[in-house]
Design a protein around this nucleic acid. Structure first.
Lengths: 294, 294
DNA sequence: CTCAAACTGTGCATCAGCGCACAGCAATAA
DNA sequence: TTATTGCTGTGCGCTGATGCACAGTTTGAG
């Protein structure tokens, strides 16, 4: 059975509220003939008269009064919704979904925490996964990406300070195997490396080219596991510079080199990029990123 | 500030619910291009994106999810309203407003009582006044009129048994003044008459023509007062035949004559005449009217 | 009684919104 | 890889909804 058009209900609502076709037409900003046609159409689909017509106006029938009550609340609901939506583009509140690879979670979580402290009405969702979340599917407001420049057409990408990586060993490893004198000594040591040949991280390519396979004593697929291996003294491996500073039990074998740097990107979808909530987070993140260099 | 069109909100609601433009178009029975245009227009008036567009569909933003929730309840409200209105034309329930002149209230009230007993879900409003209520202003569902054939264009009028009127005196009057032997004796008696010369009731025209003014000892404007005067023994006067039967303290001076009869009419507005509720009352009233003759 | 104002109602011309058709893109299966 | 399916997006032609003008009615004031 045919459902009535919502616009016709709104027209009927104004007629019931004001009592005249002309008044409703003025409020709705249409010609009064349009109002009459809406009412006629609505009554036809409902199969009942909504109004008693007379020369001085329309008086609602029982059904018309029923519609008046229902549409009244609808009117209010929509008005609230409208102003809420119009306002929320300007308000820093509601959900804010951030995504990144899990490897840099400990870098971001403090930023998220301080951001939430700054804007208590924001509910932060922090999604990390091996796969790349898609902004154009609305999966997140902001993505932190590491690696090559994002090329998606509808995304806006902004650079963050590069993620510096150096070669480290734990104090436990040094105590057991000593510290390499120079690069020629590396063959006599034990290294930790990613298992995948396909991994395109520049420092692992360097490692595969420089270190003989025999010196690589631990391989794994999970970056977090490799990092833990370095901490446990299993071997020498690459660790992000900021993590080594936090850890305290690591000895720098080779300092970070520019060619090992991984570019960090803030990526947002064009549609959401302009909103004040996203902008607030972006400035906050960029501000926090300055301290990463120190 | 411009309010969004309700139809566009409904379109956006279906898109948010189904996730695709095409799906919403099919449900709404319009072309998918129309759906896209509605969304674009709605987002423009709201000044915010409601959906993230991608090749596989539309995923709602925060604002879109907000709209989804609000419009969801609206959808349900309207569906309920729609079926309620569609059904109520067929249901004998809700308000039923009856109107008549106050003079025949006691004739109608028993009918109303038994009707309400028959259909307990009906709430009866019984309006009586000196003025004639106007059906085309929606003041009542059914009017009981007495007198000339109603001529209003949008009203449907059905005849009821004529209202018979006779000349009566109370037993108290008879005890004091005796009973008139014949019409020539009327000049020696006391009569009760309406005060207005303009009153067109046929029996009062007869009275004004037949009874000398000197014999009319009580005049008034309110029919109820005149009737009470007859009961109190002030004089001989016209009383509806059915009332004299009920009263029991009245003596018939002249029996009802056909030329004194007042036509009774059931009048309804065309728009409401077809509804089952009104029809139910009409049949009930006509059935009850048959007993008035007995 | 007459006039003016306010309202409904309708035929007609116009224009905006609609459906249509096609292009383009993404995902899935073979 | 290629073919297929299902989706979005857009220009074009047309239909149906809209605005306009005028007629008819009622009400209230002078």
């Amino acid at each position: 059975m045919a459902q009535p058009a919502w616009d016709e209900i709104r027209t009927a609502f104004q007629v019931a509220r004001l009592g005249t076709v002309s008044g409703a037409a003025e409020v709705l900003g249409v010609h009064h003939a349009t109002v009459i046609r809406h009412i006629d159409a609505l009554e036809k689909t409902l199969g009942t008269r909504l109004f008693q017509r007379h020369a001085r106006g329309y008086t609602p029938t029982e059904a018309g009064r029923d519609l008046l009550i229902v549409a009244q609340t609808t009117e209010e609901q929509f008005a609230q919704l409208s102003s809420r939506i119009k306002g929320q583009g300007e308000a820093v509140a509601g959900e804010l979904t951030i995504t990144s690879i899990s490897g840099i979670a400990d870098l971001l979580v403090p930023v998220l925490a301080s951001f939430q402290e700054l804007y208590p009405q924001v509910q932060v969702r922090f999604l990390t996964d091996m796969r790349v979340f898609r902004l154009d599917y609305g999966e997140a407001h902001v993505a932190i990406r590491v690696g090559a420049t994002p090329e998606e057409p509808d995304n806006v990408a902004q650079p963050l300070p590069h993620l510096r990586t150096g070669l480290y060993a734990s104090k436990a490893y040094i105590a057991q195997h000593g510290q390499p004198k120079d690069e020629s000594d590396f063959a006599n040591h034990r290294f930790v490396c990613i298992d995948s040949e396909a991994n395109r991280a520049p420092f692992y390519r360097w490692l595969r080219n420089t270190i003989p396979a025999s010196a690589i004593s631990f391989r794994g697929t999970d970056p977090a596991a490799l990092e833990e291996a370095v901490h446990q003294g299993i071997g020498i491996g690459f660790v992000a510079a900021y993590k080594s500073r936090i850890a305290g039990n690591l000895v720098e074998i080779l300092p970070p080199r520019p060619e090992w740097d991984a570019p960090l990107w803030i990526v947002t979808h064009v549609d959401l990029h302009r909103t004040r909530k996203v902008q607030a987070f972006l400035t906050h993140l960029k501000e926090a990123a300055k301290t990463w260099l120190a």
